[in-house]
């Protein structure tokens, strides 16, 4: 599967609410077992299958926790 998109998670901004995990159409996000410095299980991209649709960004309540990239045309 081609990598259309990519996702960078800012670990210290993520609060582990899981809304992005729920909303992600290709289901390529999950919450890790690690805790960040605030004590949240943060989200992680499996590294495969992101389409760059940006839905995770829209449902995320934090302004800068997620950065979505798309493969330039």
């Amino acid at each position: 599967m081609a990598l259309h998109g990519n996702l960078i998670v800012s670990i210290e901004e993520c609060k582990g609410c899981g809304l992005c995990v729920e909303a992600c159409p290709p289901k390529v996000l999950h919450l890790t077992q690690q805790l960040n410095h605030c004590g949240y299980h943060t989200v992680e991209y499996t590294g495969q299958g992101c389409t760059g649709c940006g839905i995770c960004f829209y449902v995320c309540p934090e302004p800068g926790a997620l950065a979505v990239y798309r493969l330039a045309a």
Binding site: G5, N6, S10, E12, E13, K15, G16, C17, G18, L19, C38, Y40, G52, G54, F57, Y58, P61, E62, P63, G64, A65, L66, A67, V68, Y69, R70, L71, A72
Partner: peptide, 30 residues
């Protein structure tokens, strides 16, 4: 890759006016 979705420009890059944990909002998860 090009950046498609990220922090809006109209947000402060760091939330200096917040007393602590200035990298994230004070809102609860979700």
């Amino acid at each position: 890759y090009v950046l498609a979705q990220h922090r809006a420009h109209s947000f402060y890059p760091v939330f200096d006016r917040k007393p602590d944990a200035q990298h994230q909002t004070h809102y609860c998860p979700g």
